[in-house]
Design a protein around this nucleic acid. Structure first.
Length: 497
RNA sequence: GGCGCUAUGGUGCAACGGUUAGCACGUGGCCCUUUCAAGGCCAAAAUGCGGGUUCGAUUCCCGCUAGCGCUACCA
């Protein structure tokens, strides 16, 4: 093919896959999963992951969204070895392919006005007609056989679907497919040029195939909404003298009402889950197991395990519902089970975001930080919990939760008792769990109240929350001086009400 | 309307001719816990319907139904 390529000419051989988003919106979870499956397949096979931006739709295209999509992929941990290539910079190559096909007779010039085929009116007109006719073959344009006598319309190029045969392709998920060519329309390859333009724009069908051939893609892994288009592409491959790749169509992700996941269902962008404070690895684990099965047993799989187990064989053919509750479960599992050191960077980032971070926690007080995170994590669901719910562990400036006060600061005597507790604790020569425990229980006995009353009230006093890790462990990480002063402050608040 | 795909508890998956149909999320209960989680244990909950094939169907075939996808000079 006499067309120029700007694809880097690395050595051939090996698996090559690509993720090809259109910058018409943010990276949504469906696209993210498609990207992830491509990536998992490439990494498992030791192949090459390519990123290609399909930005040929001038109308809907928003170049400024590209960076957001790339960011989403990076956050997800999906990296790529080549690209991003931009389809818009490859138009000449696509046009050349269309012209070549027209020249060889595999395609033809169509002089019909676009309105004849496109537009809401045209579709509706034929809709009724079709209902009465029942099963029928696709109609062929008259231009297929002869150039019309007169037309001032600049031509589009249509693919000439060969009559009388079946078109076949292999799908690693759905198995071998074949359709009668009579069911395939003569689809457009190159649009008729717009007013004032001399050249038409390539269509999606043409561009993907030309690019996939040029980039030597061996496996096309994409959403199953493309499966019906695939015969057209298989035809194009052969017309262009190339063997079609192996296709793998992955099931769609649905909302709770079983319709295709969309904004109506709430958050669908990967970015929104990042902002909510999900851990990328948890999100990845969740996404990987939606429409793919590792084989049964465990569902908590670190990324390296998923990579080593991933295979197209395990991909399901049924569309799946995006289950937010399960995603949250994954997040809590990662928050719980990860080696604490693996978690620290994400929590540091969260605390930096909320201006609570102290540099020494990564240095001299790193051990304290790890211990505190370890203490906190069984009770967290999302990253921001560390700077909201657990704020008092990282700052002296915190508020008393209204429900907590209501629940545990009811007793009138608490103001005085908390003051005495502060005194007792302040006198402690050694700050440890049992000593704190002892002081508190002694006081409870002396005041003839249940220890629980003091424990609960103290918790609110030192962390502002009704829910926190076990009290004496909490005291330990917060430290003697802060605990004492927080108790005095609370005592004052209680006394003055 | 046409063409195609799919069909196991509420959800995600397993069982790929022979199991008391398994696991996980969620739900309910119990244990643990002077908070709340986490954790442990237990429970309820499914093969869409109808025909075949077979000694035997969740599994294979056909029909129906339902859902979804495609049916653009969008991608």
């Amino acid at each position: 093919m006499a067309i120029t390529s700007n694809v880097s000419g690395t050595a051939s051989g090996g698996v090559r896959v690509r993720f090809a988003p259109s910058p018409t919106g943010y990276l949504h979870v469906g696209g993210a999963r498609t990207a992830l499956f491509n990536w998992l397949f490439a990494r498992h096979q030791g192949g090459t992951m390519i990123l290609r931006v399909e930005d040929t739709d001038v109308e809907r295209n928003r170049p400024e969204l590209v960076e957001g999509i790339l960011d989403g992929l990076r956050w997800l941990g999906v990296d790529w070895d080549e690209g991003p290539y931009f389809q818009s910079q490859r138009l000449e190559m696509h046009r050349a392919a269309a012209e070549k096909l027209a020249a060889s007779g595999a395609a033809y010039y169509c002089y019909c006005p676009p309105e004849k085929y496109a537009g809401a009116d045209a579709v509706e007109e034929t809709e009724d007609a079709r209902k009465e006719q029942g099963p029928r073959r696709v109609s062929r344009c008259a231009c297929r056989d002869a150039k019309p006598a007169s037309s001032d319309q600049k031509p589009a190029i249509r693919f000439r679907v060969p009559p009388g045969t079946m078109t076949k392709f292999d799908d690693a998920v759905f198995g071998p497919r074949e359709v009668a060519n009579e069911e395939i329309e003569d689809f457009v390859l190159l649009r008729s040029p717009k007013e004032g333009q001399s050249q038409g724009a390539p269509t999606y069908q043409l561009s993907v195939v030309v690019d996939d051939i040029d980039m030597r893609i061996t496996h096309v892994i994409r959403g199953s909404d493309h499966i019906s288009n695939t015969p057209k592409q298989a035809l194009l491959y052969r017309a262009l003298g190339a063997e079609p790749p192996i296709f793998a169509h992955v099931p769609l992700i649905l909302g709770p009402d079983r319709t295709r996941l969309s904004k109506r269902h709430g958050a669908t962008s990967v970015g929104s889950y990042r902002e909510e404070g999900f851990l990328p690895e948890a999100f990845r684990n969740f996404l990987a197991l939606l429409g793919w099965s590792a084989g049964g047993d465990t569902e908590f799989l670190r990324t390296s395990e998923i990579v080593s187990r991933f295979s197209l064989d395990g991909v399901s053919r049924t569309n799946g519902v995006f289950d937010r509750a399960k995603l949250e479960w994954y997040n809590t599992q990662y928050l719980q089970k990860l080696p604490v050191d693996d978690l620290l960077p994400a929590i540091q980032a969260e605390l930096e975001r909320t201006k609570l971070w102290q540099p020494e926690w990564a240095g001299a007080k790193r051990e304290w930080f790890a211990k505190t995170v370890d203490l906190l994590r069984p009770r967290t669901r999302l990253l921001p919990d560390f700077s909201t719910w657990a704020r008092a562990f990282f700052s002296d400036s915190f508020e008393y939760n209204a429900q907590a006060r209501e629940k545990f600061w009811k007793d009138e005597r608490l103001g005085a008792m908390l003051g005495k507790l502060a005194d007792g604790l302040a006198a402690l020569p050694d700050w440890n769990h049992d000593a704190c425990d002892h002081v508190l229980r002694e006081l409870a006995a002396a005041e003839v109240v249940k220890a629980g009353l003091l424990i609960n009230a103290t918790r609110v006093a030192i962390v502002g929350q009704a829910v926190a890790p076990p009290l004496f462990d909490t005291m330990l990480v917060i430290g003697q001086d802060p605990v004492v002063s927080r108790l005095r402050r609370a005592s004052g608040v209680l006394a003055s009400r």
